[in-house]
Amino acid sequence: MAPAPSRSANRSELRALWRKEWQSELRSRNGLLAATLFGFLAVVALTMPASTERLTPAVASAQLAVVVLFSVMIAVPRLFLTEDEQGTLDTLRLWADPGAIFLAKALMGMVLCIGQALLMGGAFFILTNATVTQPLIALAGLVAYGAALAATVGMASALVPGAQNRWLIALVISLPLCLPVVVFGTGVMAAALGSQKETSGWLTVGVLLVTAVATLVLGAVSTRAIWRLR
């Protein structure tokens, strides 16, 4: 095996990669538009029953958690796999530490997903006429849930570059990893809608944030190990 690249991520490397992700995203907008369109349509479709009958907090929180999950599944794998398919990931690997590449992409995914979670959450609460008894928990919960999902799906997507059927494999790895995150996301939304205690809501926000940070670290470490072995 070739000796592993002897680089380590540093701040200027991360900044440069982050800027590249922003420039690419802002100029193409493909993933952002696709995920936003999906999220908007899903939220509108899910809120239709609410025009005739009021959704219980438990059902509403689960619906919102699932819509955000699928929106993240559209937005995040693209950050890794499209670049792998286009061949630019190899170019990037020649220039940068794999861990830094993962972190820049995962952080970009987090920003996109948090923005989408907030937009979708806001639209969902308005369209369903839901009574948000804990608005701060709703806000923090959407941020933490979006971040944890983005990190988890990002890590799964970073494991599969170079594989055949990489999109399918990323999905297959992501879904079981996301299951506990979705459970916590549902819980935090339920707390925001008043069907769970406030302390339980904040605790769940904390768990989601810890999950996001831990997954970022794990993703950076595993990406370093795996991308060297190709």
């Binding site: 070739a2 000796p3 190899d90």
Partner: peptide, 14 residues
């Protein structure tokens, strides 16, 4: 270093 060899080794600059 983009592809790992099946056999042998390479030593090269950073």
């Amino acid at each position: 270093g983009l592809v790992a060899p099946t056999l042998g080794s390479v030593t090269r600059p950073d």
